[in-house]
Design a binder for these strands. Structure first.
Lengths: 223, 223
DNA sequence: ACCTGAACACCGTTCAAGT
DNA sequence: ACCTGAACACCGTTCAAGT
């Protein structure tokens, strides 16, 4: 019976294994996301990072989709408060642009947000902010309720489209397909030419948001 | 040297292995999609179906994303032609509703369409149809070009949201979160209550499409 | 050129068994 | 209740070797 053997390796190499908690798991997931992207935020990789087996995580997180949703709500906390200056339209556009910009840095997260919507505190704050701005603009509540969904969906989908999977080659392929179209079978596409794909992402987003807001304002909910 | 041995098993069990072609591969992928869903349309499963190894498919298809895009273009062929009756607005809404309805049956395909846009013949036809209807409505070409993108993105994202991954439980969770919100911290959410989540999918889609069209009509592209 | 077997480097999730 | 090792049932993609 050897008493007090050398401190075991595990004790030396890392600072005492912390107890598992949901917050700890989500924080570790955010760290991996920042360092290596969402495709590395897997149950196995995360377990490795937390010095445990993947099965242990299922005590705190139902599945991978729920984990990703929690990560998104966490990042939503970095978006910042509603701007104080400008018309309600300008402020609305700015809030949504900030939200989109955050997702642009993690397009794969945007992809998963489309199916597993976050329902955390930061997401609720964002919804409240958007509703307040639409209310300030005199948009009727029923339209505002559906409009918030439309605005957030557009922002999320736009970011998702810029996912790494959408490689530059694919874009070139679409570009050349559109350019080589016959004006007998597809006269309008031929006439528009590059206009279909023109514009910087910022300009297109800004235009789309203004179009959405204009449509939301003017379209009554009839039911 | 045995001449003409018994027909080998492989000859007996299936009708002569057909040569691999891109069309054959895509057709087999569509069959698997219909029977078992997109999550089973994998390189390995598809190879098994075609009685070969997964490596063989890479001669005809760059990767899984490209395969899924080809499958989507194939399904787009089932959407049917533009309706002949009604105002341009009504016809536009009907074309987009038909497109969305098709994707509703394969929401996971909608998910992948958001990142890997198809560029096949059926997709081009759809774009041409939408541009023609917007032109008929007198929408300026620059707005129409960007507007088509907005309309298709909305339809695709809406279908993607109804992905199987978005379980009923998650919806209930969001519903109860929204209902239990404090009216001190989130007065507008509290005031709206169930209005945020109200409405049948068809009613919401119809409203959204009308709002989008109204916005596209009225919002000039300034550059 | 086309096709293939085998390998590399991973996944999510479950379950029986331990503490 | 919480945690775990091990297993089950898969993935995409590459590459050297064959035809």
């Amino acid at each position: 019976m050897t008493e007090r053997p050398d401190t075991p390796r595990s004790r030396r190499e890392r600072p005492a294994k912390p107890a598992l908690t949901r917050e700890g798991i989500v924080a570790a997931a955010v760290a991996i996301l920042r360092a290596e992207g969402l495709q590395k935020v897997t149950m196995r990789r995360l377990a490795q990072e937390l010095d445990t087996g993947p099965a242990s995580l299922y005590v705190y997180v139902r599945n991978t989709a729920e984990l990703h949703a929690a990560v998104l709500d966490e990042l939503l906390g970095t978006v910042g408060p509603a701007p104080a200056e400008g018309s309600w339209r300008e402020r609305l556009e700015r809030v949504l642009t900030a939200y989109t910009a955050m997702l642009f840095e993690h397009p794969s997260l945007a992809r998963s947000a489309l199916t597993a919507r976050p329902s955390g505190p930061h997401y609720l704050n964002l919804i409240e902010t958007l509703l307040a701005l639409l209310d300030e603009g005199g948009v009727p509540p029923a339209q505002a309720a559906w409009g918030v969904d439309l605005l957030l969906q557009h922002a999320t989908a736009t970011a998702a489209e810029h996912s790494a999977e959408a490689s530059e080659e694919d874009w070139d392929a679409l570009r050349s397909t559109l350019r080589s179209v016959s004006d007998r079978t597809h006269p309008r596409i031929a006439a528009l030419g590059d206009a279909l794909l023109s514009g910087a992402p910022e300009a297109r987003l800004s235009w789309a948001l203004r179009a959405l807001i204009a449509g939301i304002e003017r379209t009554a909910v009839t039911d």
